[in-house]
Design a protein around this nucleic acid. Structure first.
Lengths: 124, 124
DNA sequence: CCTCTATGTTGACGTTTTTCGATTCAAGGC
DNA sequence: GCCTTGAATCGAAAAACGTCAACATAGAGG
């Protein structure tokens, strides 16, 4: 259940992401990143992710998330799957319940990608 | 031509965004943010934005962007419009040509929103 | 084994998104 | 004024998406 994420952001071993503003994105990288942003581009998924990310223990049971929305259980399950496929979260079954947590690093890498260098054109 | 952006991110005068991981997102804020992330959730738009953001002078003419893609001119125009409506870019007509630039701050605010506090649960 | 609860999956439906061709609008040059 | 060029808008077609009801699966507890 936990082997479905994409290798979303990390590219080279050189630390990684090159920032939106450092050079025009090539096609492949744009496609990778778009997949993650698309996953974030839905209010339900944003709330789910925030719900998980803001949780003290770092984990949230599906049984807690489902009733927080005015949506059917399959729909929530579907959104969680998309977040997982985007490489943002992962999950594990423990007994009857399934717990989700945020995969560390990914959000920060995304943030780094969006952050524009204070001195524009630094890399050039 | 430049009065169409959304008031996307800035909320209070208190500096603003409260970070994905600080507390569960409320419905309204999730909707606002989702709109921006949705704009970023397309490879073409990501490349357009990167093209503009990485440009030395900060401005790019549409006439330079259109031929860089294997898409029709109306399609590029459409994507630029979505980026503009998301509050990420703005444009101005100068003579025959239209120039686009990245609205400052928005990307950094988004980045700040995504950045998770190093010490998890800091706000709690 | 059977049943019950918690989740994930499937198939269908309506809505939104992406894309294009055709048209329209804006500005310059004749 | 008319024509040309650059860009936005319109209308329509195809694809992708969000949602649900129905079903399937996993584990707990008889």
């Amino acid at each position: 259940m936990s082997k479905q994420e994409l290798e979303v952001i990390g590219q080279g071993a050189d630390g990684c992401c090159d920032g939106l503003a450092s050079a025009p994105l090539d096609d492949e990288r744009a496609a990778q990143l778009a997949k993650v942003f698309k996953a974030l581009g839905d209010p339900i998924r944003l709330r789910l992710l925030s719900m998980i990310a803001s949780r003290e223990g770092g984990e949230v049971c599906v049984c807690e998330m489902t009733p927080a929305f005015d949506l059917s259980q399959p729909t929530i399950s579907h959104h969680l799957k998309l977040l997982r496929q985007a490489g943002l979260i992962d999950c594990e079954r423990r007994g009857t319940w399934v717990y989700y947590w945020v995969l560390p690093g990914v959000l920060d890498q995304l943030a780094a990608f969006l952050t524009t260098p204070q001195t524009a054109g630094a890399t050039a």
